[in-house]
Nucleic acid binder design. Structure first.
Lengths: 226, 226
DNA sequence: TCATAGTTGATAGTATTACTATCACTTATG
DNA sequence: CATAAGTGATAGTAATACTATCAACTATGA
């Protein structure tokens, strides 16, 4: 991916924090250390206590930015889906041919997020590992009250919409573009998870190319007109 | 589904309990009430304390059957996948034509588990709701040490294997039958979840038939030879 | 029929976690 | 220079996950 952009600003829904963590250096440290701790110790072991200690601060401070662990999770997950959407948008920009557009979109889905060095407070590569390994979205969803769900799911929904749009470009008569889009996104996540943690259950290796081929095949075959 | 069988015995891996809960009436009550509490209050709110109270017993007793909440979850999840596999096996029994066999298998995947009245200690319909709604598998996986994973995943892996086998019957040259099987299983679960909790994100309604059509289309198109 | 092992229930206690309240200190701003 | 906003330290509560101990009951088999 190109590294030309001066600064990438990912704006996260205000409902997902008490106070925007990106407005202060403590806030940025909270984000950075959260990802770091979860990446090494797992979601389970992650507590605000540990986070505060890593920060050289106290729980009180953390609670000033996030109501609780779940809200912080949602924030991070939103971040992930936003970056993924940005990546998809970027890699399909100026590509007019529908087939190539879809192929590029699937390629974006099937390779890990790289660290965008721009944002020194969040390591996207680590975030990718977390989302893959820790069933992040599931965790987040489970803890969500109905009303909050849409707030969180905006980022995810936008990614789905974008892919669904590209799907329709390829076959405007296709009946369930959203369902297919969600399937492709889920499959990409899930296969990465399997090849990392339960390789016995899948016949895909860890190479992004095998995954890309699978997604490509599912998508293009499904879109063929009779 | 037919209700002819005298007794269906679902045998769960011994690693998933300290002591087989089906060997005693307290054990059976533990299973029954767990499903019931999780179905009404959610995974989050479910504690051994509450379970014990519902049983008219104490935490101590529960701990004699399950090491902890997670192990109990794994037990239930295993149960779910075992019943699902049984359902798939049953609905494809004596069907020789590969296409029909695959279609029947996908049909099994796309409709909810019904309660098999035989097992009065576990309501399969409720279990289905839990697994769909609570990202059960994700929860379970997240809490699993590597070694235990395979123990739990046996039931799930068997279901994958079975479906992968049927896939190969339809196209023996297909390269990644396991990955396709896992995709179909995941998609069935995920779409049920979406239509229940985030209908905005999908264009499938709650009718099993729409889901079945999607799975059918993905599978059969993917399997077409060039 | 009696001894014994296995199963259960009651009580109690510990460590950790999630979260709240209060107050004092520091820094940026106008 | 005054004020407000942000931060850190201390303390405390309620709930949770889990363990230990002991007494009571029950099924068994010698």
């Amino acid at each position: 991916m190109q590294k030309l952009l001066g600064q990438i600003v990912i704006k996260i829904d205000t409902r997902l924090s008490v106070k925007d963590p990106l407005t202060s250096s403590v806030g940025q440290e909270i984000i950075r250390h959260s990802v770091s701790i979860i990446a090494t110790e797992g979601l389970e072991q992650f507590t605000f206590k540990k986070l505060a200690t890593a920060l050289g601060s106290t729980e009180t401070t953390v609670y000033r930015y996030f109501q609780n662990k779940q809200q912080l999770m949602m924030y991070l997950a939103s971040w992930y889906w936003s970056v993924m959407e940005w990546k998809m948008a970027f890699s399909t920009a100026n590509v007019e041919v529908p087939q190539i557009r879809l192929d590029k979109a699937l390629q974006a889905l099937s390779s890990p997020l790289e660290d965008l060095k721009q944002t020194e407070y969040l390591n996207e590569a680590k975030l990718h590992d977390i989302v893959i390994s820790e069933s992040f979205k599931a965790f987040v969803v489970k803890h969500l009250a109905k009303k909050e769900r849409l707030g969180y799911f905006m980022a995810y929904a936008q990614l789905c919409e974008r892919l669904a749009g590209i799907i329709l470009l390829n076959n405007k008569n296709y009946k369930t573009p959203k369902a297919l889009a969600a399937t492709l996104i889920e499959t990409s996540q899930y296969q990465m998870f399997l090849s990392k943690h339960l390789p016995e259950i899948t016949d895909l290796g860890a190479e992004p190319d095998a995954l890309h081929k699978l997604l490509h095949q599912i998508a293009f075959k499904a879109l063929e007109e009779k």
